[in-house]
Design a binder for these strands. Sequence first.
DNA 1: AAGGACAAGGTTTTT
DNA 2: CCTTGTCCTT
Length: 825
Amino acid sequence: MTDATPTAPVAGTIGPIVLDGGAAPRPGARADEDLLDGLNPQQREAVTYRGQALLIVAGAGSGKTSVLTRRIASLLRNREAWPSQILAITFTNKAAGEMRERVEHLVGDSARGMWISTFHSACVRILRREAEQFGFTKSFTIYDSGDSRALIKRLVKEHEADAFGLTPAATQGKISKLKNELADAESYARTANMSDPAERVFVELFAAYQRELQRANAFDFDDLIAQTVFLFRAFPQVADVYRRRFRHVLVDEYQDTNHAQYALIHELTRPPGSDAAPLAGSGGMMIFEAEPAAEDGASLTVVGDSDQSIYAFRGADIRNISEFEKDYPGAKVVLLEQNYRSTQNILSAANAVISHNFDRKDKRLWTDVGEGEKIIGFTGYSQHDEAQFVADEIEALRRAGVDYSQMAVFYRTNSQSRALEEIFIRSALPYKIMGGTKFYERAEIKDALAYLVAVANPADEMAMRRIINRPRRGIGDVTIETISRYAVDQQITFRDALANSSALGVGPKIQAAIAHLDAVLAEATEIMLPASGELAPPTAVADGLQLLLNKSGYYDALRASKDAQDEARIENLDEMVAVAREFARNNPEGTLLDFLTEVALVSDADDLEDASGSVSLMTLHTAKGLEYDAVFVTGVEEDLIPHRISAGEPGGPQEERRLFYVGITRARQRLYLSLAMTRAQFGEVTVAMPSRFLQEIPLELLHWRQSPGDVNSRGGTQSRALNARRGGFGGSGSGSGKRYGDDLVPLARREPTGNLERFANKIPSKVRDNGDLELAPGDRIRHDDFGEGRVDAVTGEGAKRVAHVRFDVAGPKKLLIKIAPISKL
DNA sequence: AAGGACAAGGTTTTT
DNA sequence: CCTTGTCCTT
């Protein structure tokens, strides 16, 4: 092992917090010996290495969380660090919670002072402390993407930016991207082509957006990171406080960091006092550090796997990890390649697929648990057929003793879940859809939160505008503008303008409505933020919310509604109040602000494990970081995975391949890959082609229950396996005529024509087309696979016509007439 | 100001 | 197919 440089316990702190039975460790003995139990040499190295910078390249299933938590525990046990000196950063709250739990399990209560949190919540903590330094208050609100979209939408309208092709969505995307690169309107203006009027308008929009955020005392998600970086750069003495505090910074999923996050880590791990160089801020202020830098920067540990980088589309920069050694000269790199999750067959398939990405460091996962089952492939006629296969197989697995909660079905796009759901409901399979419609994105929940924000941060005009006519109070655009203008004239906030309803010059009915809303908000404020200075009771948030919903008339309006959906909305609001009560139980000291922060930063993906007793359905993206005994990857088709839109994006196909790779490597024991020959999308039936990624899996690993060839071939005499081999893959033009740039090239070169038989997935060059074959109830037909049968009914129109056929042997089936391998007798 | 009728458009996702 | 947004009427 390495020369682990022992670091002296930090001076000036109090009492040992080590739970090692009291005795100080003998020289040479490690207090963390038990932490290394069961670890392989590479993992041990990753736990025990001490130095400025460490990169742990952790392949899927290689035990990285274990290594990370033990590394933290070992720092604490060896008294190399106090809990307060540790900052561990993850991407999701769920991951943070899990890590905290596991560290606590190892070291007990001493885990308490650590910061184990997401990038965003760590930044919120810092910003709440320092907001006053740069024109915000502690009670700033956090705009989620919906909030910021609403604001941008208003600004786009005001600036008539639509005319320049600047839609709200495009503007939001561009601003977000720029913020992730730490650009602001001013710096962007310097590089942009300002002779282009569209660019000028965009810069104007960007600046206006930022002004509005500041006016509302609000940060959007991207700001939380970027503004923290700006804060550190503008106020080095503030940055030094955190640099001195955090001596060990650990970052999980480093391959998913964007530039702003990278810069934040960089700022945090610089030596304190290293900003001694004069810094000319925009205000022209010059800052000199009195003392020369005496301390080192914090030690940095990052964990990641560039093969699992699937968030480039939202700014993740894979170079952060691939160039780590350049960024941190002298960095140690530890490679974890032994996989403790999957069978060798699954890993071999994963390795084979991912090896088609060029420009990647070679890394081969291996395991010693043995080959395991073959991967099962299935091709359905339609997505319903495919879903039926999945359902049948899940039932078979259940009978074989696999728990529902240990099975998962993945798909590329959320819309694919529908067909699966239909079949699952019909088959009475318990399932749970992960991360579908977000609880906190529902309109009624956003309304409830806007009421709370109106109390917590009266400067937030967005929240006020949202609630002012919800429930309907007869206040429309005209009145809102009247109030807004009055507020500007009087130099008060929109919220305070409500208190002067009589001065607004509006009709008596509207005036009464405004006065009522003002009174309700005031009453809620007294409960949640008592002016007298006494502490609000823990239940204040829940009570205040309840009061707001009752007295505002929100509940009444829903109850009076005829719309059936409104009943569900009431339930959702009740749930929201329950969330507030639960928050009070867990955080007796928690304030309204704490509650709003938690709600803004917590996502539904954080309660993923609630799936006890159910099969989990989710997108491939959501699947990252999870594992199941049996995994179904569905819709393995061209234009889906890889997704059509990715084809045009640089690096798109490669990212799609990583996504597929992530899906495969979630499986412990059994992996199923399925697709459909036709897929109904947007009401249109389209013909689907097997995904190119299927070609990349060696034949011997994959057993086709029904291959693409089976579904299309006419011949009933040859075995399915032989059918599968006919017709050559990738064939002449393969229908779509599309060329996918870089992606097909490596395969074509590596596999000259003679060797094609090694691959299981022949992509048929033609899809069957029966034209407008007419069928009527009572007709006898012959099907290539199912034999003879009688048509019961015909439904649908045109290309979507479906024959309901009762086969003599195979039983009832539904067939798409246009493409099914059938003929009329 | 509010509700109904039609057109448009529709990856992936965390925070 | 289904959601979302805009326009038009009352």
